[in-house]
């Protein structure tokens, strides 16, 4: 049971880590100083959340690993994040669309995780949701600003939405382990979030004059450790120090 809980925590935490790393790549490269700072601040919130999750995961695993070991010393197949968060920073429209599609899910997920009968997960959820409500405000705001902005910004958001849409369904997939966690009251039954998610996302997109994609074809795999080609590159960058100087510490 402990191993199932351990993997369940990683599934939540890895989303934060990988998205945090993607946003961190923008440090010094944002389109303006304000958006640069905003993206890195969101990244910092996510890294903070991830520390709480990994500290707890390490305690559950009981092998004396540190949060850094869990973050840095796994091969690609052991990262359990959804495919959406590993997608690259193609342009600012992709960055904001990826953020928005994730934030909406993240917010709804944490709302439910607050009801977990696992006290630590409940505490982390209650702490994180306050931060995530700001992330969601920020990304929704940009979707509207760019979608309902110039022709160019509109087209770019539409393109990003069309492209990233295939990764949204995976947010609601439940692995066998997830189902065990749901049945014992620890995990969140994501199937009940789905309608609310698509309704809320559509509402923002429509107000941003963006067409809601109708595609029924979706990508999946991340939750089982099978990733898009982008994650390998991200990890080789993120794990560089540990590979070059094994066991180094700050």
């Amino acid at each position: 049971m402990n191993n199932i809980l351990y993997k369940y925590i990683l599934g939540i935490a890895d989303n934060c880590l990988i998205l945090g790393q993607r946003l961190g790549e923008l440090c010094g490269h944002g389109p303006s100083l304000e958006t640069d700072i905003a993206c890195t601040n969101i990244s910092l919130d996510l890294f903070g959340q991830v520390r709480s999750y990994y500290q707890y995961a390490s305690q559950i695993q009981g092998e004396g690993k540190s949060e850094d070991d869990i973050a840095m010393l796994r091969p690609e197949r052991e990262y359990l994040n959804v495919l959406l968060v590993e997608q690259p920073n193609t342009d600012f429209a992709y960055v904001m669309t990826r953020q928005f599609l994730f934030d909406m899910y993240h917010y709804l997920f944490l709302q439910k995780l607050q009801e977990s009968n696992d006290n630590t997960l409940e505490a982390i959820a209650k702490k994180s949701i306050k931060e995530v409500s700001y992330h969601l405000r920020f990304s929704s705001d940009w979707i509207k600003r760019l979608g309902d902005g110039t022709q160019e910004s509109h087209d770019r958001i539409q393109l990003a939405v069309n492209d990233l849409w295939v990764y949204t369904d995976e947010l609601f997939h439940q692995t066998e382990d997830d189902k065990v966690m749901v049945s014992n009251g620890v995990g969140v039954d994501t199937s009940v979030l789905k309608d609310n998610y698509y309704n809320s996302v559509s509402e923002v997109l429509i107000s941003a004059t963006i067409e809601v994609p109708e595609s029924k074809y979706f990508q999946k795999g991340g939750k089982l450790g099978i990733h898009t080609e982008h994650l390998g590159f991200l990890l080789s960058d993120m794990q560089y120090m540990q590979r070059a100087y094994p066991n180094m510490s700050w």
């Binding site: 304000e34 306050k130 920020f138």
Partner: peptide, 30 residues
Amino acid sequence: LVSQFGSTACKALFKCEDCLEPFDYFKCLK
């Protein structure tokens, strides 16, 4: 409002349109 995120995650960046100075606003967290 200049930016919802300011010099740190807990602050937003504002600008005064009278004296033209920028300043931080500590966001409400509840």
